[in-house]
Design a protein around this nucleic acid. Structure first.
Lengths: 88, 88
DNA sequence: CAATGTTACGATACACGTAATCATA
DNA sequence: TATGATTACGTGTATCGTAACATTG
């Protein structure tokens, strides 16, 4: 599991569609679609419902989105903490 | 950044040496050494001091070890939360 | 048929293992 | 010279982009 995959998921949720998220990342749409399927496979449940108009979070997806958004922030903080201690 | 890389770091800290951590993971010693260098590069600071007897955490490494150990637990919890909501 | 998402497939990048090298008690 | 870490290099797997296909308002 790469943090990259979680960031992709965050972007898709924020954009409400895989296509526009792919443009924003940037990444080809099929590559992003695959990354989301792999993420759902690793988590073990469906996180998004797909439709003609884009994607919507499932209840499980809502939970996972909140949890991982916090997590990504904490990881950045962990790196900052380490650098701050090292640099003085 | 892969979670795998953080888990490798955890194991190295617990073992106190790259060589024994590599046996435990399992992974070839050079591969593990490279992963640690890549991790330090991504974090932006030295996390371990190397010696003939193994490795020791720097002050920055201590901080990063604590932070990421917590993070890894929280990630597992995030997955469990999602599955619980989906299944239950 | 237009805008979305997925599947197929070939090319590239990254992580691995083996072998060689460096460092130190 | 024995133990532990790093560098070099070839190989395999995973990710990417392009192209083709599927779905639906």
């Amino acid at each position: 599991m790469d943090f990259k995959r979680l960031k992709y998921f965050q972007t898709v949720v924020e954009e409400g569609a895989i296509s526009s998220a792919a443009r924003r990342i940037p990444l080809a749409q099929p590559a992003l679609s695959r990354q989301l399927l792999l993420l759902e496979d690793e988590v073990g449940t469906t996180l998004l419902t797909r439709s003609r108009h884009g994607v919507r979070l499932t209840a499980a997806g809502e939970s996972f989105y909140r949890d991982t958004r916090r997590l990504l922030g904490e990881f950045e903080q962990a790196k900052r903490n380490a650098r701050r201690i090292a640099d003085g």
